[in-house]
């Protein structure tokens, strides 16, 4: 009963706000209506929540450890979307992409206040040219610097490497008498579709075949990619301090050095 009345009021208020905005009414009126709307929406939420139990059991592992686990499996700097997908397919699946947005900054803060206090940090991948943080990628501080460098060919080689690692992990799981989840097969199949010869038609990808196909293409790029990455890694080791080596150089510090 109460919910119905509140819903009617909410709809009415939204209509009034639209009318007021379209009619060019003064801001004060729009603000007043908005405040009223917020009150009504809160009342609606409260009415709904009454009696319903919160369902948020704490995750088994802290977020950073779950991300570490996923990155270790992938073996290359990865975007949060991929980390979430791997976590869903192989682990607890309690990481949401929104939780990763501030992770790198938090890790950097922690490192700056007491360097190397933790066994590892979730840090940045570095662009080969300017050694600045590569957008949207997460890496692990204990990896060799060259692995964390992103040259022109690296997005492709890292993608192929990750596909191989995912496939190998599935082979390990099935070899140990376990089985990979259907989510894992979906993830692998999705990756395999974009690798020539890795999967046929609309069927499910076969891990061994994915490894073969990805390796075949990887060979083509590997040498050039390795050269780019090592050259940049050398520069990073000699020119960057310990913070920027992990979290990347801004444009000023890179050009000043």
């Amino acid at each position: 009963m109460e919910l119905d009345a509140l819903e009617a009021r909410i709809t009415e208020l939204r209509g009034e706000i639209r009318l007021a905005k379209a009619g060019g009414d003064d801001d004060a009126k729009v603000r007043r209506l908005r405040a009223e709307l917020r009150t009504a929406e809160r009342a609606w939420d409260d009415a709904l929540d009454r009696g319903s139990e919160p369902d948020d059991a704490p995750p088994l592992l802290p977020i950073r450890e779950q991300v570490h686990q996923a990155l270790t499996l992938l073996g290359a700097p990865s975007a949060s979307r991929v980390i979430v997908a791997v976590n869903d397919a192989f682990f607890a699946g309690r990481v949401a992409a929104t939780q990763l947005t501030s992770l790198r900054r938090d890790e950097e803060r922690s490192f700056r206040s007491s360097p190397y206090a933790r066994p590892y940090y979730l840090c940045a991948a570095l662009t080969a040219e300017l050694l600045s943080p590569a957008r949207g990628l997460l890496a692990i501080s204990t990896w060799p610097v060259a692995v964390r460098i992103i040259g022109p060919l690296s997005p492709r080689t890292d993608f192929l490497t990750s596909a191989i690692r995912v496939a190998e992990h599935m082979t390990r799981l099935t070899g140990a008498g376990g089985s990979a989840s259907s989510g894992a097969y979906r993830l692998l199949t999705r990756m395999a579709r974009n690798i020539p010869g890795a999967v046929e038609g609309f069927g499910r990808a076969d891990p061994a075949r994915v490894v073969g196909a990805a390796n075949a293409e990887l060979v083509v790029h590997q040498e050039n990619d390795r050269r780019d990455r090592h050259a940049a890694a050398e520069r990073a080791t000699t020119r960057l301090d310990e913070v920027t080596r992990l979290f990347g150089a801004g444009l000023r510090s890179a050009s000043a050095s």
Partner: peptide, 11 residues
């Protein structure tokens, strides 16, 4: 396959 992102220059 070389890929270059120019969304920013060194941040």
């Amino acid at each position: 396959v070389a890929y270059t992102d120019i969304a920013d220059v060194g941040g």
